[in-house]
Design a protein around this nucleic acid. Structure first.
Length: 707
RNA sequence: GGGCGCUUAGCUCAGUUGGUUCAGAGCACUUGGUUUACACCCAAGGGGUCGGGGGUUCGAAUCCCUCAGCGCCCACCA
């Protein structure tokens, strides 16, 4: 007896090994023998999908449901068509997000991360991971995802970590990775740098402050406009446009920064706009990217006024130790009191905020590791442009190309502990020399050679404190899960790579997809996947983004309990046009649940019939069967076509109508014997066969249909 | 500021190369039926100047221009 939908939630784990497993072989035989689906000429070739690894301590949300249902449908279809389908699951250590959670947890216990040190902190982080990790994988099983579970990977697994380190070393040796003192995005909450992609610009209503700076040796003043008066402690120049006639009198003069009374030069630079503000600019080289350029050009002093947590350091004088935003208010008051504040006007501007912590990002100068991107981007751009890697839907090609053509070097170091520690080792009296190697021992060898000093010992080496950006491990995912970094020629990677599909959201097109394409070419000179299916965002029925704050995101687990995994899967797929956001409505899950029940009821009906051997084949039924058989073949071709074009919801709708309207409402009604009467053997047999085939087509989507 | 996309029935969306298979689907709705598979059913039905305006064409939801509204991505401007 079959178990069903909302009653029972089960999952099938179908392992795919290099040689087909027994279960797999059984599936394959079943499909080929029954010819419900034509096996393709490519049958038995690998068909691989690597899962976008969810955060290890994460919980299933609507996006996951959508994403993984799609992957499951694709992988089941491949399996049915006779491919050796392999779907690799796994989780991501999510450096910054996980570390933030652990820091918070410790804080609640009155423990400060800095006090306990790296080792003890990592112990806590691993405890946390062991406790919460893997929950999300169990939830995926509940959703019915037929992953190859014994292949499950975690980005901090030993071999995965070794892969990351090796790639770092390789790219460093190729000269693609370098260390540089740059203006980077600093997240004062997480106290780490961020890559450009991790900064989200949000429009904020701010103010523009007009402040008078005195001119040295005169009673004149010059008025500058700024949105950040608190940074005046770091001012080391005032800039004007060389041809600005309003200010020709200032050429060669010096200005006095209020409050600090620092005498700074008035510099001339074309960069200054004649229209904006007052045409006169304060220059804070340490805290603004443009000002840094001016600072370098005019050889200005760089004065860093902030502590890592966003409070002011001793440069902030009497504001030392106070938060930057509190200081802004106080500085404005003080300026007003001494008459330096001329006026304040409202001003909207885009503020950079941290993707993870939402903190306002601070531009900050520091030593960081970078990966040169320009050379890596070239083959990756070509791959997408000539459709060697196909983006579905195509509209994302433009976005992709634009980003890739303007790509900047990737800041890959993070001032965190949870992650892959950078394999760079410093030595020398001031740690001024650096070597990069997979292990401490290898580093020591390199250091000895580089320094010519054979007496160096491990104690003379200090490893870089920083870890790598999480995405620096994710970008290797399709390769590293098959151990393709450490053993580039191994059987598995040669067989499974490149993979066929990547299913993910457009929000990580740059974070992840583009970088995987780049890593594929730089490490293996081959694309990582042939198709990228970009799903839409799941929104609520009013079109709002699902978010914790709004509380409009349904509990994925509860949803499955209410409607069954099948109901939820159908509900999501019904509106799953690629690349379009979908407005999620629970009614669709209800529809999905109804669909599952419809099949269940049809099964009960057929089961209830008793065969009467004395009856000769019914003629009406034969006509019905012929009609339905042809209808079925026709629809099957349509469904296949929809799938080939990634029109998953259309494929589902075609299946839905075939079963509901054609099979149930027409065929079964025609064939159904009158109450109390039996059915002839031939008709019964044919109906059963057709029923088997009809459920085959929905097996892609419904996981529990077993007849 | 630059780029991309969307606007079709009450709702969510299809509509691929412009032409009697182009005005569609599902849900919702209305009416009738059915009470021994399923009220999670069956049948029939109503409902849209395809965002506004202009143009190209024998012919436009489909191509071009323009306006309006919505959304997304990118960008260092005080």
């Amino acid at each position: 007896m079959p178990t069903f939908a909302h009653i029972n939630v089960s999952y099938m784990s179908i392992p795919s090994k290099f040689t087909p497993s027994a279960i797999e072989q059984k599936w394959y035989d079943y499909w080929t023998q029954n010819k419900y689906f034509h096996s393709t000429p490519d049958a038995r070739k690998p068909y691989t999908i690597v899962i976008p690894p969810p955060n290890v301590t994460g919980v299933l949300h609507m996006g996951h449901l959508m994403n993984n249902t799609l992957q499951d449908v694709l992988i089941r279809r491949a399996r049915m068509r006779g491919y050796n389908a392999c779907w690799v699951p796994g989780t991501d250590h999510a450096s910054i997000a996980t570390e933030a959670k652990v820091v918070n947890k410790l804080k609640n216990q009155g423990i400060d991360k800095a006090d306990i040190g790296r080792e003890a902190f990592l112990k806590h982080a691993w405890d946390w991971t062991d406790e919460h990790g893997g929950i999300i994988l169990e939830q995926l099983k509940k959703l019915g995802c037929s992953c190859d579970w014994e292949r499950t990977k975690f980005t901090l697994d030993e071999d995965m970590s070794a892969s990351v380190i090796q790639v770092f070393v390789e790219l460093y040796e190729k000269g693609l990775i370098y260390r540089g003192y740059r203006m980077v995005h600093w997240d004062p909450d997480a106290q780490t740098t961020l890559s450009d992609e991790e900064v989200i610009y949000e429009e904020k209503q701010g103010k523009l402050y007009y402040i008078a700076y005195a001119i040295e040796g005169s009673n004149e003043k010059v008025v500058i406009a700024t949105t950040r008066p608190e940074t005046l402690f770091g001012d080391t120049a005032v800039a004007i446009h060389p041809e600005d006639e309003r200010y020709t009198a200032l050429h060669g003069k010096k200005a006095i920064v209020p409050l600090v009374n620092r005498v700074v030069p008035i510099i001339k630079d074309e960069y200054v706009s004649l229209e904006l503000g007052t045409g006169c600019l304060k220059v804070t080289p340490a805290h603004d990217e443009n000002d840094k350029i001016l600072g370098d050009k005019h050889k200005l002093e760089f004065i860093d006024i902030f502590n890592p947590d966003g409070t002011l350091n001793h440069q902030g004088l009497h504001y030392k130790g106070q938060d930057r935003f509190a200081v802004r208010k106080e500085v404005v008051k003080e300026l007003e009191a001494n008459g330096s504040l001329i006026k304040v006007t409202p001003h909207t501007h885009k503020l950079g905020t941290s993707e993870r912590t939402k903190a306002v990002v601070e531009p900050r100068l520091s030593d960081q590791w970078f990966l040169q991107m320009e050379a890596l981007a070239k083959p990756a751009i070509d791959a997408v442009e000539n459709e060697d890697v196909q983006l579905v839907p195509k509209k994302f090609i433009n976005t992709y190309r634009h980003w890739m053509n303007n790509i900047r070097d990737w800041n890959i170091s993070r001032q965190l502990w949870w992650g892959h520690q950078i394999p760079a080792y410093y030595y020398g009296t001031n740690n001024e020399n650096v070597v990069v190697a997979e292990t401490e021992e290898k580093a020591l060898e390199k250091a000895k050679i580089a320094s010519g000093n054979d007496a160096l010992t491990l104690n003379d080496l200090t490893q870089d404190e920083d870890v790598l950006d999480t995405w620096f491990s994710s970008w290797l995912w399709p390769i590293s899960v098959f151990n393709g970094v450490l053993e580039p020629e191994n059987e598995e990677i040669s067989y499974y790579y490149p993979t066929q599909e990547l299913v993910t959201g457009p929000d990580i097109l740059f974070f992840w997809v583009a970088r995987m394409i780049m890593s594929g070419y730089v490490l293996r000179n081959e694309k990582p996947f042939s198709h990228v299916y970009l799903t839409g965002l799941v929104r609520d029925s009013q079109g709002r983004k699902m978010s914790k704050q709004l509380g409009n995101s349904p509990d994925a687990i509860k949803l499955m309990d209410t409607y069954g995994a099948d109901g939820v899967r159908v509900g999501l797929l019904l509106s799953a046009a690629a690349g379009n956001d979908l407005l999620f409505d629970e009614n669709l899950c209800q529809q999905g649940k109804n669909f599952a029940n419809k099949i269940w009821n049809a099964f009960r009906l057929v089961q209830s019939w008793t065969v009467d051997e004395t009856l000769s084949p019914c003629k009406t039924a034969a006509v019905g069967l012929d009609w339905y058989t042809s209808k079925f073949q026709q629809t099957l071709a349509t469904i296949d076509d929809h799938f080939d074009k990634y029109r998953i919801s259309d494929a589902l709708m075609a299946t839905y109508k075939l079963i509901w309207d054609d099979f149930c409402s027409w065929l079964l009604e025609i064939v159904k014997p009158a109450y109390g009467e039996g059915i002839d053997a031939e008709t019964y047999q044919k109906v059963c066969a057709l029923f088997g085939s009809v459920t085959c087509s929905c097996k892609l989507i419904l996981i529990n249909v077993i007849v």
